[in-house]
Nucleic acid binder design. Structure first.
Length: 529
DNA sequence: GTGTAATGCGCG
DNA sequence: AAAGCGCGCATTACAC
């Protein structure tokens, strides 16, 4: 445990062991903190029951803000790359070594801090992102991670029993058709069975480095040609959920049956959070069995979950950023934008728009933000390539401002070498100059996506800071962030109240000419949300 | 045994 | 000819 103190700030290192009373006393006096991976340190402070200090700066996150392309963000890497340090490892030394070299380590942090502050002060908006969003968010995330979310293990056990029966049934049937006990989990062996042994057509099937693909999208093309296809798809769905969630989550709980994720601030190039160990941002929801897994996440005794979701946040931001008055107006009048879009593309009255027409319009509405082309649209909707091409053309006729905006982003990426979000977070775009078509176009699509996904991420992060402030002393904890959604746990009697606070806070976190609608739900488990 | 690439798929 | 963004993780296959 090392503290480096000067007249202005206290520099704290990443630690995992604490035993000295002296140290605990010292911690309680810390009011402001600078460090490397401060979030990890704050979790130890919480464990000790200390009040959290204000986060002034984090050199790991700072390095990422200034250059998100740099992969290695260890204190070692930063010290040698940015400060020219060449000594032995700073971040993998044991307790004794740490004490011996405390000055060295705090010195590196201090110097990185000073350099990064200088760099940030030259970039006004990025600096504001750091000061107003990232630094306050560090404490919010530390608390979320520390509190965790409760898992009903017996519920998962019951699900597991059902799954195991189903898996063995499916396997027996599949072995029957394959006339061998193939490893269904091996794409190689499976391809051999499907495309050689059973002689299924390989026309139109994607080919990878090792042979013909057996991915779900390719199997879909074979559906109806052989009963084994559907069985394999079912086997995949069930074993995926079993291996990834049902088997592993119960092993990651603490003594109170709670699981604690880690939110990473320095991974996603757009500024989103990522969640790992376990990843709680990809808990299933799209299938019946998947939703069953969600119900295993439960609120504690006398508590409820409240969820608050931004409704179509990225599409609203697209409307605002491209200054498409029509689209902005649609959102502000609460009309169904997918129906409205279909109505414009097909030149039909909204009441004459079928489910399928709406579905196709929805795919394009979201797809354009990712650079979806005719190929992808055809894939997603079942249109022919020609129809898809025409559909996209019609779309941009109806949304000329969006087309213009996308073109502007592509040009900016080439000209300036970076794209920024609404609040000024930057993503470098070096690959838009690549001589490789695939690499170049991929970089262009990522660039186009940045303002939408990244601005949404900024707004949600800011909202988390504000919501955390409002919920202080309210017997209510933020547990999860799933990109456009927050889940809190609070006592039953205040749930309605909390829902309202979250809605108002999140909708008004930033003043824009477009309404950012937030929907809330209350439930005893995640499946009810 | 450990590391890595490839494949596949869960979520927003 | 290619041609959907952002993640994390399980498994297989294979090199070391």
């Amino acid at each position: 445990m090392i503290l480096g103190v000067d007249e202005k700030n206290t520099y704290v290192l990443n630690l995992d062991k604490l035993d000295s009373e002296l140290v605990k006393a010292k911690i309680s006096q810390i009011k402001k903190v600078v460090g490397y991976d401060v979030k990890s340190t704050l979790k130890i402070f919480i464990e000790l029951g200390a009040d959290l200090p204000e986060v002034l700066h984090d050199v790991m996150t700072g390095a990422f803000l200034l250059n998100p392309l740099r992969r290695i963000q260890s204190l070692d890497e930063l010290s040698s790359a940015d400060l020219g340090y060449s000594g032995s490892s700073l971040d993998e030394i044991d307790d004794e070594g740490l004490i011996a070299r405390a000055a060295e380590v705090t010195g590196a942090v201090r110097e990185l801090y000073e350099r990064q502050e200088k760099e940030l002060s030259k970039l006004e908006k990025l600096n504001k992102v750091a000061q107003k969003i990232e630094w306050p968010l560090v404490s919010v995330l530390a608390k979320m991670e520390y509190i965790g979310i409760k898992l009903d293990k017996s519920h998962l056990e019951r699900i597991n029993d059902q799954i195991e029966d189903k898996v063995s049934d499916l396997e027996q049937e599949i072995y029957g058709y394959a006339d061998a006990e193939v490893n269904i989990g091996s794409p190689q062996q499976l391809a051999e069975v499907l495309y050689v042994k059973l002689g299924l057509p390989t026309q139109g099937i994607k080919k990878g480095k090792t042979g013909y693909s057996t991915a779900a999208s390719e199997l879909a093309k074979l559906n109806g040609l052989h009963p084994i296809i559907d069985l394999i798809s079912q086997w995949r769905e069930v074993t995926k959920l079993k291996n990834t969630y049902v088997d592993t989550l119960p092993e990651m709980t603490d003594e109170n049956s709670r699981v604690h994720t880690t939110y990473n601030l320095t991974v996603a190039q757009t500024g989103r959070l990522s969640s790992a160990d376990p990843n709680l941002q990809n808990i299933p929801v799209r299938t019946e069995l998947g939703r069953e897994i969600r119900t295993a996440f439960v609120a504690g005794q006398g508590k409820k979950f409240v969820s608050a979701d931004y409704s179509q946040q990225e599409l609203r931001l697209a409307a605002y950023l491209s200054e498409d008055k029509e689209l902005i107006d649609m959102f502000n009048r609460d009309v169904d934008v997918h129906v409205a879009t279909a109505s414009q593309i097909y030149s039909r009255e909204p009441q004459d728009i079928t489910k399928n027409m709406r579905r196709d319009a929805k795919v394009v509405n979201f797809g354009v933000m990712y650079g979806l082309g005719p190929h992808g649209l055809a894939q997603a909707t079942g249109m022919t390539h020609e129809q898809a091409k025409h559909f996209i053309e019609k779309y941009f006729e109806v949304r000329p401002k969006l087309k213009e905006y996308i073109e502007k982003i592509r040009e900016k990426a080439k000209r300036d070498g970076y794209i920024e979000t609404l609040l000024g977070r930057r993503r470098p775009t070096p690959d838009v100059h690549s001589s490789n078509f695939m690499v170049r176009e991929g970089a262009m699509r990522a660039a186009v996506n940045m303002p939408f996904q990244g601005s949404a991420a900024d707004i949600m992060k800011l909202a988390m800071v504000k919501v955390a402030e409002k919920l202080e002393r309210k017997d209510c904890d933020i547990l999860l962030q799933i990109h456009d959604s927050l889940i809190v746990e609070c006592s039953e009697d205040v749930a309605e109240d909390i829902a309202q606070i979250m809605k108002i806070t999140m909708e008004n976190v930033i003043k824009l000419p477009i309404k950012l609608t937030v929907d809330t739900t209350i439930g005893k488990n995640w499946g009810e949300l």
